[in-house]
Design a binder for these strands. Structure first.
Lengths: 210, 210
DNA sequence: TATCGTATAGTCGGATCCGACTAATGGAGG
DNA sequence: CCTCCATTAGTCGGATCCGACTATACGATA
């Protein structure tokens, strides 16, 4: 699979918006924020203007006009090209089809959970679970309001459903793991200082399985 | 919460390794890969040397010596400072405690699932589910082998358990959503070209709930 | 009517990231 | 004993990203 010319997801958002109508960058940012898509895309004005430039360079979008409203600063308006439209669809297709290995910060931290010691680790996990719980409730309520009211077809909020599902899974794992630490199911190996740093002595593995 | 001086997770990996013993960057990379931590950290030699430099600048690690083995290129060996050790623990603590909003590519793509149309969307989701299924089996087997053999305490593979759990959740959602599309539970609004781009006509919302 | 805050629209320089490259060594195979 | 390839160890320049900043306009308020 050949590497994509423009790989950041903000470019996908730009292409998606220009599918609907032509816009200037500032409007893209505010539209995305209005629609609550800032959970799916990292919207940073600096990056946005760079991304737009890069899309222009690759011929996926073009400048339509530069209008000046009153004495406000000029706005440069863009549209997709035909290439850009095809690229958009095939990119979405590929992103859905083939899972990409992401590197979430949480997983990085979990791989050093041992460094906290059992008590602090369990406590930290519980605190996380609390935050996640709040986020889950917010997400549920947001979905209920927006979709339930019939303002927007459910398909247009489907990524929020995915986000909620992911949150719930993480919440479940977090709580379960903290329980396992507290109940001793997940045991802490003992660390010892050696000449060359730290080593662990694994808790004796019992071989009493049938 | 004040912004961290060094924020990328590769730095966390470096600090973690130097907790055990002093190392030169190349050894860090190969150790991480050997231990299969390349799922949790994005290991790129270029970034690694930059990260190490940055850690030195902030006083979290220091150069111990530069050895030359035979006529091989010089290796520069590093250790953590006391500040670095404290920073490491408090960073892990923070990363566990407070969830950070990540922006996975999949979620970005899902938010434009509509662009594929129902058939192609369902098909793409199924293909993803297939890939995920394979990854899940690999992960399960790897865990069974490594932990089951007692070579390594379970705590040291805990992030793989988390990864597996996340994969399973994503797999479940992917399959469920593809089912919903096929069964019509998740309906596609009809798109219409208007003067200014595309608009959708929402499928009639039935108000026949009790 | 002077001023304060907010919305509009975008620029810029430095930090970070990453892939592609260099260069030497040790060992396997013919 | 010559060649080829994998391993060891790291450099470098360009691409990307991002936060902090500028500058104008509009509306509310004192």
């Amino acid at each position: 699979m050949a590497r994509r010319k423009v790989a950041n997801t903000l470019a996908l958002a730009v292409l998606g918006l220009l599918q609907e109508k032509s816009m200037h960058p500032y409007e893209m940012a505010s539209t995305l924020r209005e629609r609550g898509k800032d959970g799916s895309f990292k919207i940073n004005t600096g990056s946005l203007y760079d991304t737009v430039q890069s899309l222009v360079r690759h011929g996926w979008i073009t400048q339509v006009e530069t209008v000046r409203d009153g004495r406000r600063p000029e706005r440069t308006v863009y549209t997709t090209t035909e290439v850009g439209q095809q690229e958009f669809v095939s990119w979405v297709d590929e992103l859905i089809r083939t899972p990409a290995t992401e590197h979430p910060k949480f997983m990085a931290a979990v791989s050093y959970l041992g460094a906290l010691g059992p008590e602090r680790a369990a406590e930290a996990l519980d605190e996380r679970a609390g935050h996640l719980d709040r986020q889950i409730h917010e997400a549920r309520q947001m979905l209920a309001e927006t979709v339930g009211s019939g303002l927007l077809p459910r398909l247009f909020m489907i990524e929020a459903e995915y986000g909620l599902h992911a949150l719930e899974a993480e919440h479940a794992w977090t709580l379960r793991t903290s329980d396992e630490i507290r109940s001793g199911t997940l045991s802490w190996p003992e660390f010892e200082q050696t000449d060359q740093g730290w080593a662990w002595s694994a808790p004796a593995e019992r071989k009493d399985a049938p």
